[in-house]
Amino acid sequence: MTTMPRFLLAARAVAWRHLYKWITVPANFMPTFIFPLIFFGGFAGALGRVGDVPGFDYDANYTSWIFVFSLLQTCLFGGLATGFTIAGDFQSGFARRLMLAVADRRSILLGYVMSTFARAAVMSAVVTGVAALTGLEVLGSVAELAAMYALALCLSICGTLWAAGVMFRARDPQLGPAMQIPMFIAIFLAPVYVPLDLLEGWLHAVASVNPITYVMQAARDLLAGHPHDTSIAVYAIAGLMGLLLVWALTGVRAAERAGG
């Protein structure tokens, strides 16, 4: 343990604090579960009949269809919640302590990515549990499921990097919507309710170029046990992570310049 490089030690400490606060402060803990479950319950519960419309072609049931969306949303928005932690630290001044204490400030970013990843894993399990209780249909193999969760957790990294990039620049929780709305749009401009083929007009056009569409499709296919086009999803998520990493790292630089 003590041989761990300083950079990783610092990242681990940041991650520890983040997770510890998540668990011990109810105001942090509850919303992380409530939102994904609201969407899951609301959509899976209300929209079951949508799965019956002509042309809706999915091997598992509509609950499974919405479950994948909820899983991805849980992971992506878990990252956004981290953005609020970052901004809150800047507002309370605690960010200065972090910025002063670590030699390399990128370790703060890594710490948040790590803790958010761990948190997303827990939340994914919870969402899966609730879905299982309300009729989730799983047709894929264990390996296929593992791949599905891997895709989802990569989205958690994307969410964290995006949120960190915004909040290292904005440093104000009030600007939370500027961070949430683009991601909200991004995940909803995908085949949320019906397959891509059934989308029409502008929504079809936008969803066709949205990388999240391909992640969502691949994850659904994996759940249904019919993986195809998974490589497109992997490229999409890798590209997204790469771009967002640059965005987050330049955000750290911006915070340094601004005088955390």
Binding site: A10, V14, R17, S92, R96, R97
Partner: peptide, 28 residues
């Protein structure tokens, strides 16, 4: 120690010290 104290209201004093120590690479 800056003019405005930089603390996290949800951590205890000891947790603060452990956290800052870890950030500086001091553990155990």
């Amino acid at each position: 120690a800056l003019q405005a104290v930089a603390l996290d209201n949800f951590l205890t004093a000891r947790e603060h010290l452990r956290l800052i120590a870890a950030l500086q690479g001091i553990t155990g």
